[in-house]
Design a protein around this nucleic acid. Structure first.
Length: 410
DNA sequence: TGTCCACTGGAAGGGAGGGCTT
DNA sequence: AAGCCCTCCCTTCCAGTGGACA
């Protein structure tokens, strides 16, 4: 056999029995422990579709990693297996990715157009045109169309509920096809932002997915590790530890599975034949740091400048800042790098975005006579993140830069 | 009790960049 | 080529505000 640089790492101690995809959250297993009841409930709602009747609309609530998407995908597979599957079109759209009215209509429409040349373009048409095209396509056949809108709260937040209103009354414009909606939301209060008409139509049926507790997470992990590993690779004690850690993070099964997968990868890389608690702890740190680093890397330059400004202040022992201070520093960094500065209004929004990404803590606080403003504090490891920021071409010239001492007094 | 600071965050709108239609 | 349309990223403008201090 030929020598290969991969040779030493191939073969001998493969810790994964099969494909490691099994431990990715996107993998849909044969059984979803502790979600049997939800599957049953949703199946019951959707069963009319198999008889050619329009099912009720459904609204599903639950925090991240509570199995919402998994259940919905599971049902999709089941429907495809059924005899009447031809009549039923089940399509899934993530509104965090397609987050504009135009995008949603275009996305749905294109699932019904096989001919590439006739596809709806991603821009150029008016939304009304796209809607008409969609109606026309849907109505070509007698069929039931179930549209799953995952992260439906995201689109409402961004573009309002007009698009939902339009989709909810699309049946009035159809003569042969029928459309049902399944909305999935992380945010329990999301219906408060909806127009009452939209709210009542959308939530014919409601389902709530509670977070998993530690025992339930343990069962999920056990089930998956049986598929992914040989006996003894992932001891119960390790699975319990992972379950306990993930239970603290609001019962997020996705976190639990990621933790198990990364732990296994670390063990494998180290040449161990089973996962130990130390792998889990290292995996936890690795995941946390990787998440932050990924988020920082993909920030636009302006946001990077803002974040760097906050970190440079922290370096000087100035860890709690006001919007004004952040903006002053930001202006200084813009001058140094020759970047055209944005207005303070815009920077306020970018700071809020950093907050939502979890890279900084920002909350409004009143200092009485001294005004009312955000109190901003970095929540990332200073040195690691600084190093990442300095890799950006524009920020590179700020390497080693120290802030001019502020004129503000203690 | 009222004042007043330093913003906050909504609203409206502009204009660049994508691309369709005629 | 001219005329539209949608989205993104920003700017301009501004009424509103929590609470320390006088």
């Amino acid at each position: 056999m030929e020598e290969s640089i991969f040779q030493p790492y191939l073969g001998n101690r493969a810790i994964f029995k099969m494909d490691r995809e099994i431990l990715r959250p996107s993998y849909i297993p044969e059984r979803l422990p502790h979600r049997e009841a939800h599957i049953g409930q949703l199946a019951q709602v959707l069963v009319p579709a198999l008889k050619g009747e329009r099912p009720s609309n459904v609204l599903i609530f639950g925090k991240t990693g509570t199995g919402k998407t998994a259940v919905v995908k599971y049902i999709e597979n089941e429907i495809k297996k059924a005899d009447a599957a031809r009549l039923v079109h089940y399509l899934y759209l993530n509104c965090e990715i397609v987050d504009t009215p135009y995008g949603v209509l275009q996305g749905i429409g294109n699932k019904f157009i096989e001919n590439f040349n006739q596809r709806i373009p991603f821009t150029g048409l008016s939304t009304d045109r796209v809607y008409s095209l969609l109606v026309e396509k849907l109505d070509e056949e007698r069929r039931i169309v179930v549209i799953v809108l995952d992260e439906i709260d995201k689109i409402v937040l961004k573009s309002g509920d007009d698009i939902l209103y339009q989709l909810l009354k699309i049946n009035d414009d159809l003569s042969r096809a029928r459309v049902s909606l399944i909305g999935i939301s992380n945010d329990l209060k999301f219906t408060e932002y909806l127009d009452p008409r939209v709210r009542s139509r959308l939530s014919d049926e409601k389902m709530v997915f509670p977070p998993y507790n530690a025992e339930e997470l343990f069962d999920i992990l056990l089930e998956r590790s049986k598929l992914a590993f040989d006996n003894g690779t992932a001891p119960d004690a390790v699975l319990s530890l992972i379950a306990a850690l993930a239970a603290q993070e609001h019962g997020d099964a996705r976190r639990a599975l990621d933790l198990l997968r990364v732990s296994a990868e670390l063990a494998e890389r180290q040449g161990d034949d089973h996962i130990g608690e130390e792998h889990v702890m290292r995996a936890k740190n690795k995941i946390e740091l990787d998440t932050v680093i990924e988020a920082v890397k993909s920030l636009p330059t302006q946001s990077k400048l803002i974040l760097l400004g906050i970190l440079l202040n922290e370096e000087l022992g100035n860890s709690k800042l006001t919007t004004g201070e952040v903006y002053t520093t930001y202006r200084e960094l813009c001058r140094k790098t020759g970047v055209a500065p944005l207005t303070q209004r815009r920077v306020t929004d970018l700071i809020s975005e950093l907050d939502m990404l979890g890279l900084v803590h920002a909350r409004v606080k009143s200092f009485g006579r001294a005004g009312r403003t955000k109190e901003i504090q970095a929540s990332v490891p200073l040195l690691d993140v600084k190093k990442i920021l300095e890799k950006d071409e524009v920020l590179a010239e700020l390497r080693g830069y120290r802030l001019r001492v502020q004129t503000t007094l203690m």
